[in-house]
C-alpha cells in the first residue's frame, strides 16, 4: 500500500485554493478552479479558464451528448474526472465545414459528410487528440469535467468575473 495519497479533484468533489495578497490585486492572478467552473456551467459551454494571446484553455461540463465541433487546427481534450466518450468523423471536405483560416472550435449545425474514424473512451487524466480535418462530439452518462487546449473561437465563453477570485 502506498505511503502517499495523490489528491485529484472532480466535478462533485473539489477544494479550491486561494490567493493571499501581500501587495497586489488578486484579479491579476485570474485564479479559478476547473471543477468549480464545470459544476456551475451549462453542458458543453466551453469556458475559457486561461488565455495567452489567441490561445485558450477551455473547461467544459460534459453531460449527455454534445454538438458536433470542428476546428482548422488540432485540439486536445483531457478528461479530469469521470468517463467521457469522444466520437470522431473524418470530414470529406473540412474547408467547407470550417474556414481553414479560422481559429478555435466551431459548432457544426449538422454532421457534414465524412467517414467514421472511431471513438475513444476517456477516464480521469486521459488526453486525446481532436485532429484537424475531423469533426468530433462528446458523450457522457454523468457530469464530467473536460479541459480543452484550443484557440479562442466562436464557441469560447469568457466569463472571467464569474469564475475568478476577486
Amino acid at each position: 500500500m502506498s505511503d502517499y495519497t495523490t489528491v485529484f479533484g472532480s466535478i462533485d468533489r473539489y477544494e479550491r485554493g486561494t490567493v493571499n495578497i501581500v501587495a497586489d490585486d488578486p484579479k491579476n492572478y485570474l485564479f479559478s478552479n476547473m471543477f468549480d467552473v464545470a459544476a456551475k456551467s451549462r453542458p458543453y459551454e466551453r469556458v475559457a479558464v486561461a488565455k495567452n494571446f489567441e490561445y485558450v484553455i477551455e473547461v467544459a461540463r460534459a453531460e449527455g451528448g454534445s454538438p458536433w465541433y470542428a476546428a482548422a487546427h488540432d485540439e486536445f481534450v483531457t478528461c479530469l474526472d469521470h468517463r467521457v466518450e469522444v466520437h470522431l468523423v473524418k470530414l470529406d471536405d473540412p474547408d467547407a465545414a470550417v474556414d481553414p483560416e479560422s481559429e478555435g472550435a466551431h459548432r457544426l449545425p449538422e454532421l457534414p459528410a465524412g467517414r467514421k474514424m472511431g471513438r475513444v473512451v476517456l477516464g480521469r487524466g486521459h488526453m486525446a487528440i481532436l485532429p484537424v480535418g475531423a469533426a468530433y462530439r462528446f458523450e457522457a452518462a454523468r457530469p464530467a469535467t473536460l479541459m480543452i487546449q484550443s484557440i479562442d473561437g466562436p464557441e469560447t465563453v469568457h466569463k472571467w468575473a464569474e469564475i475568478c477570485q476577486k
Binding site: 502506498s2 475513444v120 473512451v121 477516464g123 487524466g125 487528440i129
Partner: peptide, 28 residues
C-alpha cells in the same frame, strides 16, 4: 509518491484505416 495513480490507458477504438489518427494516452 504516485504509487496510487491508476495506470489504465484510454479505450481506443479506431475504424480500419484510422489506427494512427485516433489516439489517446493517460497523461496522469
Amino acid at each position: 509518491m504516485f504509487a496510487d495513480v491508476p495506470q489504465d490507458q484510454p479505450e481506443v477504438y479506431p475504424e480500419p484505416g484510422f489506427e494512427h489518427e485516433v489516439s489517446a494516452f493517460n497523461l496522469f
